[in-house]
């Protein structure tokens, strides 16, 4: 089917939102794609996704963001959606230490089920609840460095850093893609223009240890 003109894009990047229940994944998504926030956002059942097309590093990127259920029992269903994702936003709630403690479990999930080169960004959400903060920025920052993740704190409610977070991860994905296409010396531009999701791990299914370069 022919794409409409307003849907023209250079790249389609699939990104997943993961993290414990109630950390604000759905609201990060709605803030980014529709500039909306809903206090009564219900738990996500299964998976949902939304898209937004934006400019990143001078390119038109269509970001397809998959929102997943946070409860552990649905993980078998949601982890199927990690496949083909170029990026993952791993979200915790800065007011709930357990959601930060569980980040390592989520990382393991990604390493088990996602493509090995997936770009992972750690997000501490709900910074608007200043008086309730229970996870220090420095702790999360050092954890992210140790694990080789990028890190940012956001407030979906106040629309702080949400745009920046998505911009950052999409830019990082773009840099990896362009580096990869340069090094592989393929006329990549044409295939990319097809608008297909590009797997960073490419055609090879060989498992590499994650992220650390």
């Amino acid at each position: 089917m022919a794409r409409r003109l307003d849907e023209e894009y250079d790249y389609l990047f699939k990104v997943v939102l993961i993290g414990d229940s109630g950390v604000g994944k759905s609201n990060l998504l709605s803030r980014f794609t529709r500039n909306e926030f809903c206090l009564e956002s219900k738990s996500t059942i299964g998976v949902e996704f939304a898209t937004r097309t934006l400019q990143v590093e001078g390119k038109t990127i269509k970001a397809q963001i998959w929102d997943t259920a946070g409860q552990e029992r649905y993980r078998a269903i949601t982890s199927a959606y990690y496949r083909g994702a170029l990026g993952a936003l791993l979200v915790y709630d800065v007011t709930k230490p357990t959601t930060f403690e569980n980040v390592s479990r989520w990382l393991k999930e990604l390493r088990d089920h996602a493509d090995s080169n997936i770009v992972i960004m750690l997000i501490g959400n709900k910074t608007d609840l200043k008086h309730l903060r229970a996870v220090a920025t420095e702790d999360a920052q050092s954890y992210a460095e140790k694990e080789g993740l990028s890190f940012i704190e956001t407030s979906a409610l106040e629309a702080i850093n949400v745009e920046k977070a998505f911009q950052m991860i999409l830019a990082e994905i773009y840099r990896i893609i362009s580096k990869k296409t340069l090094s592989s010396e393929e006329p990549a531009a044409t295939s990319i223009k097809e608008g297909k999701t590009i797997l960073v791990s490419g055609e090879a299914n060989t498992k590499k240890t994650c992220c650390s370069t």
Partner: peptide, 16 residues
């Protein structure tokens, strides 16, 4: 305990 946490979370975001 995990159930209790999830229940409270969902109960509070039940809409009107």
């Amino acid at each position: 305990t995990t159930s209790k946490t999830s229940i409270r979370l969902d109960a509070l975001r039940a809409n009107a």
